[in-house]
Design a protein around this nucleic acid. Structure first.
Length: 111
DNA sequence: AATTTGACGCAGC
DNA sequence: AGCTGCGCCAAAT
């Protein structure tokens, strides 16, 4: 069916491919899928990601490395806690050495 | 049916 | 070097 859920599934599919301990950005996913804007990535995760919490949406942040989506989780600290448990350092909702942990979908193909 | 909002990003100032 | 405005596309009101 050609419903809007198709976009969500594409975004979620990429998010599920993010390696543990790595993070990516909305813009990177949107650019990789060439589907729309970064806003839609967040929108898709919010609509579908909340229902299907099997998606590691906590590994998706904005281009500044800020946990902009923490407020969308049931617990606003879940995102930071989970990322920290994966070995990331977060201070004031900002991932430290973000560029170092940044992962791009293209990396998956390259590897 | 039109306006506002949103888990964003970038160019301009 | 930080703030503002504009673009993106869909959903909610």
């Amino acid at each position: 069916m050609t419903s809007k859920f198709d976009y969500s599934s594409a975004v979620i599919d990429v998010v599920k491919l993010i390696p543990k301990g790595r993070v990516t950005t909305y813009g990177a996913i949107a650019d990789f899928l060439s589907l729309g804007s970064a806003r839609m990535v967040g929108w898709a995760l919010n609509k579908s990601g909340l229902v299907d919490n099997s998606t590691p949406a906590h590994r998706v942040v904005n281009r500044k490395g800020e946990l902009s989506g923490r407020n969308a989780f049931r617990d606003s600290n879940y995102m930071q806690t989970t990322l920290e448990s994966e070995g990331l350092h977060i201070i004031d909702n900002v991932i430290q050495k973000f560029d170092q942990h940044f992962w791009h979908p293209e990396q998956m193909i390259n590897s």
